[in-house]
Nucleic acid binder design. Structure first.
Lengths: 202, 202
DNA sequence: ACCTGAACACCGTTCAAGT
DNA sequence: ACCTGAACACCGTTCAAGT
């Protein structure tokens, strides 16, 4: 896959390198995947990577961008489903990425570029969540706070072995129930109504 | 501070080393603090540290234990205060440790001993939180789930620049309000009653 | 039992040089 | 413009040896 010099343009080769790095990083973890290994797998010299990426963090960010782009495309399909289904979907979708997520968090203080990406990502996810919450009857004054709480719960579940399936469902139901049951707006959603996946609560 | 051979016993010297390492790690971060630096600050050879600690993770765990022991002592004083005050206190108390917290999370997958410590710590904190929640009228069937959600929110706030003071208060109020307002048990706590620090909600 | 000097393996990154 | 061989600085850790 080296395909040297001029028959692949810069962006194409960069993408190819990201793909290779992504596969290795997802398999073995970011810290455990050395630049030398990535280079060797790509058939180039280690320092060649530094022609395409400023440093290892830039490579990490490129990997994250490619993963987020894919997930975002798929999210469109569940965007209109009930809140608990959406939350469960998000958690299941990112379940394989817990290692990467904690790598991102661990680079936060050392790398301004990772910190920057991370903050942007949070902003994007939370504003999307806030919009969904608004649709579900959460009053405007609380959507931002509720979205942040939802985000924290998602991150918590993902960071901690993601819990067992059963426990995850319980937490998702608990949070959606709490968040949407405001001053009667969505009161019914909480009482006895079966969950959207057909299982009884508790 | 070397105090060699026999005029300090093993445990005493170990504690001294932990103290020195803890100061450096809190100042510069775990990853940024090399074993060589700790050793030099302690006036010993780098490899001497490996007489007292199995590896760098063991040193991390010793630091964490000392920090938790201190915090636990202080927590006794606020244990009987209202829920929102307790949560705010916990967040403020651990605010200076965000770097360490993410270091712990980043070692989770690579180090079984850190993972072990982390799981124990969560279990301890969550069972304590669950007991407080029960005192505040949360039904038995939900204390565990609610405690875990509270823990996720605490961790989320601590991991993300801990937010601004104002935003933190808002989230704490939101969560305590939601969690304690169950089927009328603590219904009043939510409606219009001013927060325990005297500020109006929203 | 406690401590050390010296080395090892590995890491991300850089430099000077090639085409 | 794109790529490389070789080196650099640094890391946690180990080894063989000293007392």
């Amino acid at each position: 896959m080296p395909r040297n010099h001029r028959d692949l343009d810069l962006q194409e080769k960069r993408d190819a390198l990201v793909g290779i790095a992504r596969r290795l990083v997802l398999a073995d973890g970011f810290e455990a995947t050395g630049m030398a290994r990535i280079a060797s797998e790509a058939g180039v010299a280690p320092n060649t990577l530094y022609w395409y990426f400023e440093d290892k963090d830039a490579l990490l960010i490129a990997i994250l961008d490619s993963l987020v782009a894919e997930a975002l495309g798929e999210y469109a399909k569940v965007q209109t489903k009930p809140l608990d289904v959406q939350l469960s979907w998000i958690i299941a979708r990112f379940e394989g990425l817990t290692g990467l997520i904690s790598s991102v968090h661990s680079r936060l203080s050392a790398s301004p570029s990772v910190r920057d990406w991370h903050d942007r990502f949070h902003q994007m996810v939370e504003s999307t969540l806030a919009a969904r919450l608004a649709e579900h009857g959460v009053p405007e004054t609380e959507t931002a706070t509720a979205a942040r709480v939802a985000m924290f719960v998602i991150e918590g579940l993902l960071s901690h072995h993601a819990g067992q399936r059963r426990e995850r469902d319980q937490i998702v139901q608990f949070v959606t129930g709490l968040v949407t049951r405001r001053d009667g707006t969505a009161e019914t959603q909480l009482k006895r109504k079966p969950t959207s996946d057909g299982r009884a609560r508790r």
